[in-house]
Design a protein around this nucleic acid. Structure first.
Lengths: 110, 110
DNA sequence: TTAATTCATTGCAATATTACGATTAATATT
DNA sequence: AATATTAATCGTAATATTGCAATGAATTAA
């Protein structure tokens, strides 16, 4: 099948998985880290920085943009990408709550 | 190709992506949430709880177990799964650091 | 205008993922 | 022993993902 049966899960569960999937490729992790590192946001530099072909980077950027985690503005012939902090924070809250789940002191039956 | 060129990324980037991929399917998110919710850990109940076929759940459990996020012990004919808190915390630290990245006040050039 | 630059899009090949029926292995129950 | 229960594994179909060469669109530079 290759496709998840999203209809049987909660919106929250689907949302978590969608965000997680965005981080499920090292190139996208690297792109985001680089966009955080340089406070002025560059773009085509990502191709050199990451080391994948330009169409491949473009594709990864597209996914991140679709999720709202980054935004890009055209500047002459180049495009400037940067983190969308509002959406990033929203995503971060959702993911942090998921990761922050805790067991009672006893727990771990296995 | 369908496979990531992991060799061009740092260990950290690859590790983040591997953990993230584990959460990249709502069924695995649901499984983990359920294992957190019930402090006594059940197993075959997951099949009823989640609503996917038994082999499918078994496959998802296998992935989570491979990453060390859960552990399972045989009890009679059934298997008891639960969160591996030590590994979960380790993963949580890595992911939290990634998510916690912050920009300088100015930022957001776009 | 022509050429160069930058990036998006298209098309495709290779591989991965998801899901489940059928089967198997292991233990429990009768 | 025979049967039932539980869960792992195998095999397979459908779909998704990754990566890149080739191409196209837009802007800038000459």
């Amino acid at each position: 099948m290759g496709l998840a049966k999203t209809e049987i899960f909660t919106d929250e569960q689907n949302q978590i998985s969608v965000f997680a999937k965005a981080f499920g490729h090292p190139a996208r992790v690297a792109i985001l880290q680089h966009l955080f590192k340089i406070d002025t946001c560059f773009c085509g530099d990502l191709v050199k920085e990451i080391g994948l072909a330009q169409p491949t980077i473009s594709q990864h950027l597209k996914e991140l943009k679709y999720l709202g985690l980054i935004k890009g503005t055209v500047e002459g012939t180049s495009v400037c990408y940067c983190i969308d902090m509002a959406n990033w924070k929203e995503m971060k809250d959702i993911m942090t709550e998921f990761l922050g789940q805790d067991l009672l002191p006893k727990d771990e039956c296995c």
